[in-house]
Amino acid sequence: MSYLFDHPDKVMPFFWEHVRLTFTSLLIALCIALPLGFVIAKYRKLQAPVTSVLGIIYTIPSMALYAALIPYTGLGKTTAMIGLVAYAQMILVRNVVAAIQGIDPMMIEAAKGMGMSKRQIVFRIEVPLAVPVVLAGIRVATVSIISIGTVAAWIGAGGLGRLIYQGLNHDHTGKIVAGTVTIALLAIGADLLFRIVEKIFSPRTA
């Protein structure tokens, strides 16, 4: 513990590196998962094949996935992010599908009956109603990325995992504890932040 308090200047760069890695991976993952989830929620025939492929990726242990990727993309941040994005897909896509399909069909009927076009129904009804559920998915995905991101340090992605890795190599317990505690704090902090955002976006309850 003392390492964390004595050398915050040495922990912080790892912390920010971890945040950047998480954030970038999350953004890329969302760019894929939001449209993909929306499309398979609408075209149900695609749903089973897409979710089973994502499910298979999700069950591959992270180290094994990285081992398989290294011959193609090498060591470093790129490989790490490919892995993180792939893991997040399962969580995000499933949530987007659940969010869209969980919308009360009466809502869509009311919107149609009032004369909204297909486009207007998507942007004025479906998207806003899906947001709270999707946000919950983003929260879970973020926390997963933070924790799996630790493993990514082993293939040279940097971040807090690297601090733990150093500690293990040099038998430096202080570094191991500092890395672990900071990761936990980051995960809890991210969870809390998203819970607040969810609260803001969900329709207020009385």
Binding site: A110, G113, I125, P203
Partner: peptide, 8 residues
């Protein structure tokens, strides 16, 4: 429509 027709 029956109740729940309002957009929440």
């Amino acid at each position: 429509i029956q109740q729940n027709g309002l957009f929440p």
